[in-house]
Design a protein around this nucleic acid. Structure first.
Lengths: 144, 144
DNA sequence: CTCCTATTGCAATTCAATTTCAATAATAAT
DNA sequence: ATTATTATTGAAATTGAATTGCAATAGGAG
């Protein structure tokens, strides 16, 4: 908690855009609970809270929220994109169960070394990476 | 180079499905050239070769070609899925330039260690992983 | 308070992906 | 070979996530 609204507000102002209640509602909703989310989930939760926001506004704002570093694309599943909070959380990767959909996050410091070495070898300027490991979680692996 | 048609044929037969010229055309096209591809690209190339195959058939067959291990999902970009050949090629990861779209493949053995350790720590049975590093390639990083 | 224009909600649109359906053809059985 | 069964196909219709056009609204600078 804390800081995300301010970060977003100054990002918006710096770009010469306008802060609106709709934008604050979206940010507040994401940071109230949703480590991982998709647009429809966000929309339904906002509606349940009495918000009158439209899906179009959510779609329109997500690129801005990504650009300012509060969230990022996480993965594409069930025909649509899933996002995740990154502001206030360390960089992490995912273990995703392909049977029940469970997502476990993990942090690995060795990954940074690989990234650095690969970037050097290929003359790349790294901006981001994502490592997704898929398989069966402890519950599901016994059922396969 | 070879084997892919035979692998697919016996996969199809084992499932009690039917081998068709359309299926062989798709496999042949993928393995003629396309390390990375999307459905439309495949369709256009097949059409250029005189094939009468429909996009629906390509869409219908991709899950089967994935299931038998010839190709796999690579990444989602520009609103649609991109695939890559895996049969006959070692497992590899990607460096993707977010400016020009260039994709460089790399192999890293250290990654296997991370995978093993993370799986052990979280009691996961790993099926696959994908590491995508995004940033600017040698050409594009000087222009940013 | 006024003006300019970014933002919104709604509806229409786009387009990748899926599905329906009748015709066709691959395989097994005869 | 011939026939029967049913998986597969192409074409067209449909779905649904994501985008966009438009008129109304409202943020924020002056």
């Amino acid at each position: 908690m804390g800081g995300e609204i301010e970060v977003f507000r100054s990002f918006i102002s710096k770009k010469g855009l306008r802060n609106t209640p709709e934008r604050e509602e979206i940010i507040a909703e994401i940071f109230s609970d949703h480590n991982h989310f998709d647009v429809d989930e966000l929309y339904q939760c906002l509606k349940a809270r009495g918000s009158k926001i439209s899906k179009a506004s959510i779609y329109r704002n997500i690129p801005l929220i990504i650009e300012c570093g509060l969230i990022r694309d996480a993965w594409f599943e069930d025909r649509h994109m899933h996002y995740e909070r990154i502001y206030g959380r360390g960089h992490h990767c995912h273990l995703r169960c392909i049977r029940c959909g469970k997502v476990v996050e993990f942090v690995d410091n060795q990954l940074k070394d690989i990234e650095t070495r690969v970037a050097l070898e290929n003359d790349f300027h790294v901006i981001d990476h994502r490592l997704d490991i898929t398989g069966y979680c402890s519950k599901c692996k016994t059922m396969e």
